[in-house]
């Protein structure tokens, strides 16, 4: 499982990662649109730099959850989690329901709102590059090694090592270690990163398990409901037959 570790204390906000990403995927120039959001992500910006007070910078990108809500939500399986850990998108399967955008706890997937043939767009962890043994364009471009690429376990170890070595420098927490079952894009920081989740604290329970309970009940509900209805119908039908049996007298009584 590959991962990215971003250390916000090292980020200088140069946006080289953003530019590298745009160049790799030939993304068009961004202009302010009605549907753009404040965080700088859009269908043409798969990663962005959020500037916080006192010159702090936070890079925002897809978190590539270990148990992604978007993958579980997509009705046609257009989003897929690969063995390397990248959550990738197949535009040929997509029907454009935007359920993935609703389901994502980080609000990452963005839409080609201006296109008559729109697709969902987000960071795909440079899936082509990492399968070729290269590292993602963004981590390669970073001049200060603020964002680095590697194996998830190793990077987790590295994060904890940094937290241990210079505890004064960081908040004692690795963002993405456990939230919603863990993510593959990890953060360590000296400022609170709740802005990445719109200020909402996320629990540790993976989101797909929440629907799983309801979805597992589906076959039982179907069979149970059918059987109940058939049973009721049979019982009532039989009772009516028994009532009718004594002869035509009763029916006439009823009619009166």
């Amino acid at each position: 499982m590959k991962a990215i570790l971003t250390d916000t204390t090292k980020c200088i906000g140069c946006r080289e990662c953003v530019i590298a990403c745009k160049k790799t995927y030939n993304l068009e120039e961004e202009v302010p649109r009605r549907w753009s959001s404040d965080d700088g992500l859009s269908s043409r910006n798969w990663t962005s730099i959020i500037q916080k007070p006192e010159g702090k910078f936070i890079r925002k990108q897809c978190r590539h959850c270990l148990q992604p809500a978007c993958v579980s939500a997509c009705p046609v399986g257009a989003l897929r989690k690969t063995s390397e850990g990248a959550v990738i998108y197949d535009s040929k399967k997509c029907i454009g329901c935007r359920y993935c955008m609703m389901a994502c706890p980080y609000g990452i997937p963005r839409y080609d709102w201006d296109q008559p043939v729109p697709y969902v767009r987000k960071c795909i962890l440079c899936y082509d590059r990492i399968t070729q043994g290269k590292q993602p364009a963004c981590t390669e471009a970073c001049p200060t090694e603020a964002t680095i690429f590697g194996d998830r376990q190793e990077l987790l170890g590295e994060a904890h090592r940094r937290l241990k070595e210079t505890p004064d420098k960081y908040i004692d927490r690795v963002w993405g270690e456990k939230e919603v079952g863990g993510t593959q894009v990890l953060y360590i920081s000296d400022i609170d990163l709740s802005c990445l989740t719109y200020g909402r604290p996320l629990g540790e329970k993976p989101l797909p398990t929440r629907t799983a309970t309801a979805m597992n009940a589906v076959p039982y509900t179907f069979v149970g409901m059918s059987a109940t209805m058939a049973g009721i119908s049979w019982i009532i039908g039989r009772r009516m037959k028994i009532q009718e049996k004594p002869g035509d007298d009763q029916r006439e009584d009823n009619d009166e």
Binding site: C74, V76, I95, C97, Y99
Partner: peptide, 19 residues
């Protein structure tokens, strides 16, 4: 967004999705 693909639900399955 891509209404002409609505039939994809018939051939591409994701039984985890309530949708």
């Amino acid at each position: 967004g891509l209404p002409w693909n609505i039939w994809h639900m018939i051939i591409f399955w994701n039984p985890h999705s309530p949708l």
